[in-house]
């Protein structure tokens, strides 16, 4: 049985095709779905977690169809949405207890056992009886993961799990996620953080306008590019590039090129800049990263079709 399996899964909103013929097959791994805002990540997660119904195609989670057996699907999954939603006037323990009860664990001693386990695995024991409003962002996120673990899910869906967290908290969250995978949980995560995806995901899929344009292990995807040249200049780039050098995008004010042999091609590329009369401030040859693959796959156009959402702004203000 495949934990997550989709075939030609599509979702359209009126005339917009948000997810287009998605085929996924995911099993006991950390799978990262990457893509720009509005590329269909959240819609995909919505369909897999039974929050949205597919327009066509089918999806199975834990061997059950999301449309015909939504309740059975919900019994074997946990979903942690992008925006943190822990009850700040409840203690950490009460927050988990609340979910444990909703998952239908009625036996008090069994519930206590599971809560203690979840607190323990997320390193929240010391602060379990404090009100959640005194928790840091990282702790609140860990609490959400702890809530999600009480019913021992087979598949865990995480929407942007590290958004808004500092470096150390991010690292901690990912280490916990990696531990969960070792315990046999399949993890489906959406993220914008390329370095994190590169380091922690077993496989990634890059989504562009509802279509998976690249899929594979980060190292396999990176092997498609030999080397990367980045050039910082006074803003323009030459119209004509040497053969074997491809423009892939912009990054921190530099132009990024891919080449089979960056070290050899760098002088001829700089020569093109000279010929075009563009001043080069600095240049560098480096190994490709997942971010390069991502930029190459989705292009540099900003695909921002997400509606400006007042509620999100308010949420940010309230959290502050």
């Amino acid at each position: 049985m495949t934990d997550i399996f989709t075939s030609k899964l599509s979702k359209s909103y009126e005339d917009v095709l948000a997810v287009n013929s998605l085929d996924l097959s995911i099993n006991n791994e950390i799978y990262g779905l990457l893509g720009p805002n509005g590329s269909g990540k959240t819609t995909t997660v919505g369909m897999l977690t039974t929050l949205l119904s597919p327009s066509s195609g089918n999806a199975q989670v834990c061997g059950h169809d999301v449309t015909t057996e939504p309740k059975t699907v919900r019994e074997c999954i946990s979903y942690v949405p992008q925006y943190m939603a822990v009850d700040i006037r409840l203690t950490g323990r009460e927050n988990i207890d609340f979910y444990a009860k909703l998952y239908g664990i009625r036996d008090k001693s069994e519930r206590k056992k599971r809560i203690d386990y979840a607190l323990d695995i997320m390193d929240l024991n010391d602060r379990a009886d404090d009100l959640t409003k005194t928790y840091s962002g990282g702790m609140q996120r860990r609490l959400e993961l702890a809530q999600a673990l009480t019913h021992q899910p087979k598949v865990l869906f995480l929407d942007e799990p590290t958004v808004g967290l500092d470096v150390i908290a991010r690292k901690m969250i990912w280490e916990h996620i990696a531990d969960l995978k070792k315990n046999g949980i399949t993890i489906f995560v959406t993220t914008h953080q390329m370095e994190e995806a590169e380091r922690y995901c077993d496989r990634v899929g890059i989504l562009k306008k509802g279509v998976v344009v690249k899929e594979g292990t980060p190292s396999h995807l990176k092997s498609a590019l030999k080397s990367i040249i980045t050039i910082k200049s006074d803003g323009k780039m030459p119209n004509i590039l040497p053969d074997n050098v491809d423009f892939i995008g912009n990054e921190n004010g530099s132009v990024v090129y891919a080449s089979d042999n960056g070290a050899d091609m760098l002088p001829s590329l700089i020569k093109k800049y000279d010929e075009a009369g563009i001043r080069v401030y600095s240049s560098m040859v480096r190994d490709p990263t997942l971010e390069d693959i991502y930029l190459m796959s989705v292009g540099t156009e900003t695909v921002d079709t997400e509606q400006f959402n007042r509620a999100q702004i308010r949420r940010i203000i309230m959290k502050g």
Binding site: L51, Y99, M318
Partner: peptide, 14 residues
């Protein structure tokens, strides 16, 4: 709804 609790609740088997 706006703070995201509802979505979490809807993904529960209850």
């Amino acid at each position: 709804k706006t703070l995201g609790y509802l979505n979490k609740f809807l993904a529960l088997p209850s």
